[in-house]
Design a protein around this nucleic acid. Structure first.
Lengths: 251, 251
DNA sequence: GCTCATTTGTTCGTATGTATC
DNA sequence: TGATACATACGAACAAATGAG
């Protein structure tokens, strides 16, 4: 449950709405990791008494945070910190389709290897860490039906993910990167930025995707962030789009 | 302003929340085009009296519709039907960047030509119209800085856009397709579906993009929809990604 | 620049409904 | 069954922005 959430707390009585101040206070507990994904936050009544505001005001702050996907409410049970898996259907990186009709195609993820490498540009710049900081490099291939579709190389700052090899290796062959990171480090994914372009397959990519060296492939660079716009993963994706295409929806 | 919004209207008193019923009623006025983009809807007090509910209930229905981008509220002024331009920064099709850093790059749109063509598959299937229905075909090129970046071919159902040539030709050289369609036909864009893959430039594409015939290009198929998931534009985009890439954010 | 009617925004207090355990 | 939790709804008061006079 919760912790050190006792005693009266005060909000200022200036021009900023009370519900908004409260909303920011609650958000801070989540972003600072005091309240962690999947766990309940204090009850509405508890919050109302603690901050000496009406239930309606708490309700408004809570409703807003729910819309922002920071939390989710279950009537009669409680209010819980949001998780990527539950909230963000839209944020999934890999969505395969043949066409606009029909559903997403299933795929399996195979882990190729994980190792530590020296930091490099532009990765370290995008990840907002020093040039010299080391990175975990995770190579994976996404297989759908007949063959390989995506070759993905992810880079994570070693400093943010201590012991990643041991903790995540088992998970990564059964689950996505998001889930692994959220489970092991409590960091939900909040935002993904993507850049789409064309690349020519180098020897390694060609081998993994079972295509000719030098064939054109769809090249997707991705930068994933967690709370406070903190980037944590830089990923290079090489897509073989002969049979399956990358699908996105904008709403 | 509004119209035929007088007299008492009733909501059922069943298990469905009043605010939700009201929300759907208001949405219907918008989807049916009774209230059009940019115009004000009746005042909250007016709505509260008309449906015989409290202001709080109206506020909740209105707030939800605002989050859904159906409307936007201006304190002291009124509540207005949403427009694509104002609401949907995220839905813009063409976002150019060199990198994750920096801002979106500017570009100009040049209209190549507009004509009427016979319907064809898969376009007519995606647009949910009969095989035989004719289409408007709009060819445009997007130019950024040094040269052409995107060659876009759009298909619109002639039946939905009577007189498109006359109405839109002037607009299309200065504005986006969204704006042109919203201005002339009152249809805001609500959703975009996209499929990313690789294509090889045919003679026409190569000429427009000033590249070699047969060069690989980023191929983006897009299907835009308005209210009620009604598709209205099928677009093929050929991207030359040497210097500028296609940028997307998922939140 | 000021006042005033209109409109949306905020907050409280209270009561009742409904899901969970 | 009862205690707890969130959800809905009302009414009232005041705040803040807008635009007209």
């Amino acid at each position: 449950m919760s912790n050190n959430f006792t005693g009266k707390k005060k909000l200022t009585s200036g021009p900023i709405p009370v519900y908004y101040q409260l909303q920011k206070e609650l958000k801070k507990y989540i972003e600072d990791g005091v309240w962690v994904p999947g766990e309940p936050i204090p009850s509405s009544r508890n919050i109302a008494e603690t901050y000496d505001v009406s239930m309606g005001t708490v309700q408004k702050a809570v409703a807003n945070l729910e819309k922002e996907k920071y939390i989710y409410c279950v009537q009669g049970k409680g209010t819980f910190v949001g998780t990527t898996a539950i909230n963000k259907e839209s944020i999934r990186y890999t969505l395969l389709r043949e066409d606009f009709e029909g559903n997403d195609l299933q795929f399996k993820i195979k882990l190729i290897d994980i190792d530590k490498v020296d930091g490099f540009q532009p990765a370290n710049r995008f990840l907002e860490i020093a040039k010299s900081e080391a990175l975990y490099r995770i190579k994976r291939v996404f297989v759908s039906g007949s063959g390989p579709v995506v070759y993905a190389i992810s880079y994570l700052p070693c400093s943010m993910f201590e012991g990643f090899e041991e903790k995540a290796t088992k998970r990564l062959s059964r689950t996505t990167m998001y889930e692994a990171i959220e489970m092991e480090y409590g960091l939900p994914t909040v935002k993904n930025k993507e850049l789409f372009s064309i690349a020519l397959a180098d020897e390694e990519t060609a081998k993994v995707l079972q295509i000719q060296k030098g064939s054109p492939v769809l090249f997707v660079e991705m930068l994933s962030s967690t709370y406070k716009e903190q980037p944590y993963e830089y990923r290079l994706g090489y897509w073989q789009t002969e049979k399956r295409k990358l699908y996105r929806e904008l709403i």
